[in-house]
Design a protein around this nucleic acid. Structure first.
Lengths: 230, 230
DNA sequence: TTATAACATTGATGCATATCAATGTTTTAT
DNA sequence: ATAAAACATTGATATGCATCAATGTTATAA
């Protein structure tokens, strides 16, 4: 794994999480003392499905994919970008990672001893409340994902995914997607070949523009209609 | 909706949840004062997808299905049996139900004003901690579900579901499943026709026994193999 | 700098699964 | 008690999608 440094300024960190504001200064110090800032290079595993949860993971900088490794194929559940906890529910659940997390670009992850976080959570209800809110939102997101996979077919799913990136993740009509076609396929729960096929279909129809990894949503209304009709 | 009574003995209730043991007696009284015990008949909606979350729901007695309503078909995410909170993450998330919950038999649901639970959670960290653990486990369960749907095919999925009922839900080789074939299909994310077909396939092969809604797992090892191979 | 692997693209083929259809059975409601 | 609706079953058909195959392109490593 990559090189790391000790955290030394959690309170003034520009990537600080909102939940931290719920803690007293000396409690933040507790976190800071345990916190290792680890530099991951693109493509490295941050945690591995099936292993024990020993640390809370906070993505300070960069982006990662959270995915379940299957026998033949993977399923990417979430793309997470900076200043977010990743995989909080594993701290409170059965303490075994149900998924693997891999960086999509060079990233900085804060790793804090799980028991320290749990102890703090047990002592600071406002802090725990924020974490719980976070986990709940995450659960709701997965509910939406599962229903997309179950109910829509390829074109609808891909339209959904493109809109999601445009509207929720990058908040722009044009965005650079740090995913390969294969990863985009794993995120949309379809084969890589069909992902390519449908993307180019949308491009030919003038609904989107593609220039390598730069995507442009040209006709969001049509895309929305496709997403809706499934 | 059905008739209801006011709760009057939460502390000594035989269906009491473990999380309640984390509260002081007078805090339990707060819950008790707000708690309505509502009697639902089989097939009634306990909450409805798209509506606002106003109450915490606790399934004291009976059983329910939690499902997402799609355009053509539904997807049952969980079957919940007695003495369990249902849909806790909706209290802490965006306060809109992402799913509908319907009773599978006559059931008693305790409905407690959402804000009272949230206030208690904000004051009793041990209580909140139990709720959070609950939500986290629920998230992990959905992760498993999503991967089953995505990675396995019909026979494997159905084998999985049957084993799950036998091993986790009813903890017995023989069990009465309070689901119609259609609901079993919605739980396994497949068509009703194929559910029937494969069930009878398993029956012919002597892997399971079916007598109406009574299922017997006769050869769990074979079933496990089918589940594994997908 | 070159070799090797991963990525991207397009077409052809096969299969798993949903859908349609027909018919009998069991609930549910009046 | 009877009608209507939901449930259950089995077979035939259609199709959406993955898989296979072939080929070009771009990263990555030695």
């Amino acid at each position: 794994m990559a090189k790391f440094t000790h955290a030394n300024s959690c309170n003034t960190c520009p990537y600080k999480d909102y939940a931290l504001t719920k803690l007293q200064t000396n409690d933040v110090d507790l976190i800071q003392n345990s916190c290792l800032i680890v530099n991951f290079k693109k493509g490295e595993n941050v945690c591995k499905q099936g292993t024990e949860v020993t640390h809370a993971l906070y993505l300070a900088k960069g982006s990662v994919k959270l995915y379940i490794e299957g026998k033949n194929k993977n399923l990417i559940l979430k793309i997470i970008t900076q200043s977010k906890y990743i995989g909080l529910q594993s701290l409170f659940g059965d303490r075994i990672y149900q998924y693997t997390i891999t960086t999509l670009e060079d990233s900085q992850i804060c790793m804090i001893n799980a028991n320290i976080i749990l102890d703090l959570a047990k002592k600071n209800v406002d802090y725990l409340f924020e974490l719980t809110r976070n986990i709940s939102e995450s659960t709701n997101f997965v509910y939406k994902k599962i229903i997309d996979i179950n109910q829509k077919q390829l074109r609808g799913r891909l339209a959904d995914v493109l809109l999601h990136f445009s509207e929720n993740v990058f908040k722009s009509d044009t965005f650079e997607l740090k995913l390969t076609r294969k990863e985009l396929a794993e995120y949309s729960a379809m084969s890589m070949e069909n992902t390519v096929r449908i993307l180019n279909e949308y491009k030919k129809d003038g609904i989107i523009g593609i220039e390598g990894k730069i995507f442009t949503i040209k006709q969001p209304d049509i895309l929305r209609k496709v997403a809706e009709l499934g």
